[in-house]
Every structure is written in C-alpha cells, then in structure tokens.
Amino acid sequence: MIKLTVNGKSYELDLPSDMPVLWVIRDRLGLTGTKYGCGVAQCGACTVHMDGEAIRSCVTPVSRAAGKSIVTIEGLEPSLSKPLQEAWTEIDVPQCGYCQSGQIMAAAILIRDQPQPTDNDIDNAMAGNICRCCTYLRIRQAIHLASRLKSSNAMLSAI
C-alpha cells in the first residue's frame, strides 16, 4: 500500500511501486487533466507539482511520491491558477489545448519563484514543455500578463 496526497486528499492505494504517478492520477484516480505526451520526460504534458516542484509525472515512480503531496491542474491553488487562467483566457493561448495543463503547471512554478520573469526566465522555465501547435508566443505573453495579475491580486488582497 502506498500513501500519497493528491490535491489535498489522502489516498492509500495498492499499486506496483514502479507505476508512474501519471498513470496513478489518470487511470486510478480519474484525474485526466494531466496528459501523456511522451512517457520519457521529453515533453512536459504530464507536469504536476510534488512538494512544490514541477515534476514529470510520466517518469516519477509512485514509490517516490509516497508520503508526498501531489497537485494537479485540477487542484492548483487559486493564488497561482487564477492569474494564470485569467491570462491564458485573455491572450487566448490554447489551440488543441492538450499540452496546456502541463504548460500552466510549469508556468505556476515560474511565477511563484520569479514574480516578474524576464523573457530569458521564461525560456529557462518553459523550454521543457512542447506545444505541437506552437502556441509559444502566446504562452510567453500570458506568463507576463499572469505575473502582472498575480502581483496586483496580491496587492488587492493586502489592502
């Protein structure tokens, strides 16, 4: 039995220890927002947060997640999801949309750690996520916008 927390909910699951976190959350927990794209940590479609880092769930064995806290696109905290989703909507980023959960989960770590990212920061944070529709320009714009929204949201909540 492996104990893990997903989006704040605790689970105790009987799983093979080498089963990647991706398939645990998709096939066992039914959370399909996190996507399969390559299975070998090349594309970033499977990005989720584990103890606050943007891990590639397709290569992370569930044994490593034992006792840890996983957050998926469905459970991203509002202080990050709100500015990102607002920005993604405003810029109309997605085309096919398949990679966007992973893009947003990666971007969330960026704007958390670097509230005002430069274009170079965006390259450094986001080059691990492939978008086959090539929405990269809009992702870049949306991250800049999200960082502005996040700081104004933070200011508002401080008032």
Binding site: A41, G44, T47, E53, A54, I55, R56, V59, T60, P61, R64, M105, A106, A107, I109, L110, D113, Q114, D121, N124, A125, M126, A127, G128, N129
Partner: peptide, 11 residues
C-alpha cells in the same frame, strides 16, 4: 531553474 529542476526528471 524553476520548472526545470534536475530532479523533476532525474529520479
């Protein structure tokens, strides 16, 4: 850096 930490992929 950011979403590209070594350990995000390297187990």
């Amino acid at each position: 850096l950011f979403a590209m930490k070594c350990k995000n992929c390297h187990q």
